[in-house]
Nucleic acid binder design. Sequence first.
DNA 1: AAGTTAAATAAAATCGATATTTTCTTGCTA
DNA 2: TAGCAAGAAAATATCGATTTTATTTAACTT
Lengths: 233, 233
Amino acid sequence: MTASEPKTHSEGVYASLRAELLGGSFLPGSKLKLAGIGTRYGVSLSVVREAMTRLAGEGLVRALPQRGFCVTPLSVDDLLDLTRARVLIETSVLRESIGQGGLEWESAVIAAHHTLQGTTYTTDEGHLDAAWSAAHQAFHRALLTGAKSPRLESIATELRDCSLLYQHWSIDIAGDLDRDVAAEHRNIAELAVARDAEGAVRALTEHIERTTAALLAYAESQTDPRRAAGISA
Amino acid sequence: MTASEPKTHSEGVYASLRAELLGGSFLPGSKLKLAGIGTRYGVSLSVVREAMTRLAGEGLVRALPQRGFCVTPLSVDDLLDLTRARVLIETSVLRESIGQGGLEWESAVIAAHHTLQGTTYTTDEGHLDAAWSAAHQAFHRALLTGAKSPRLESIATELRDCSLLYQHWSIDIAGDLDRDVAAEHRNIAELAVARDAEGAVRALTEHIERTTAALLAYAESQTDPRRAAGISA
DNA sequence: AAGTTAAATAAAATCGATATTTTCTTGCTA
DNA sequence: TAGCAAGAAAATATCGATTTTATTTAACTT
């Protein structure tokens, strides 16, 4: 059994579409035509529509009244806001996590880090590797599980998923990542498990902001970022 | 013109349903039958379904695969988690807001507070007054606008909307509120405008937690909270 | 040639109906 | 009487078609 059959048709399309979006299969800002997707998945418009509505709620696509849906357009302003929100929330929750996490939490962090470390970074054709991406998200999620707050965890995860959309801006991001990212992760994991809250928070903040900086640098390196990478503003 | 006509049919039903939910018209955990709502609003199932899906994304209703939708069931555990998340996020954003807010922000806070203060608390039949509730939400929102972060603002608003569902648990909450709430609001507003970040944060924290405490006290006062107020766990 | 209007095309939003699944009811059995 | 099973009823999820709205194309005007 790979993944338990989705209870409803709509659920399946939602999950697939979500994976495609986070995998960077669509161009930011591009139009998502319901009919096309419907036939591609062999389902009716209704189920595509429902999936889209859910994705819009998560901020991965945008609903344009009377004009359907499009992949969420990216913008420098939003990237900055998103980064700020992530830093503020993830660091706050990490503090709680370090303060309240028990042995299971430590183990989970170490396990997630080990997995991440062992996942090869096959940067074929400049795209982020799906497996690595998943391990990366899992690691960051594990860091926050010590806080034992379902709501905060899901908010942080949602924001992280949104920022994943930005990771496909640049093919250079891959090269930039394996430069220091492994060390950064090790550092965060160690500080967290060592209960050095302030140190871990600092490391996490830098980790998040460094990726954003790389993205911004890439965006600026383009003469016209709008055309080059789907930026809308 | 009262409120610009909603572009789409679905949008209208969504807004109405949302207002009903936040107004406490439905019992927590109760089933929302699509057909009934559809005929009540004079629309097809599709549009109700879409509205529901959106509301589910916001956490106001819950989607039960193959079994439709129900009003989000309330629970003590979730109330505690929700309160924790709100305190953590709203205080963090308030700090930023106080640090970065300009004169317009101060004015907005003062204006929102004045409106709130002047809105009569007509607690007819023990229900929260819609106008007061709106003014209350607007005030709390205004406090955070100085941070100039759309994402953080909307997250905070969403959580606050969720906690509004809990306010209808008890008919006593109304009596409890006008006891000290006006003073609390004045206090928060003054400290915020005076740029006393830590003081304002402390006041806001107490304000949020006090309401939760009142709700919990009411919940415990019931021999069987489940039956009495729609609590599910 | 640029701009404007009008028809034609394409797409989205909505509907009404069907197929499935769940829930309720009723009668049976131990 | 409690528990179970089968059938009836209700409600959901999905479909296919219709209506409405946006977009494109083409013709026309200045």
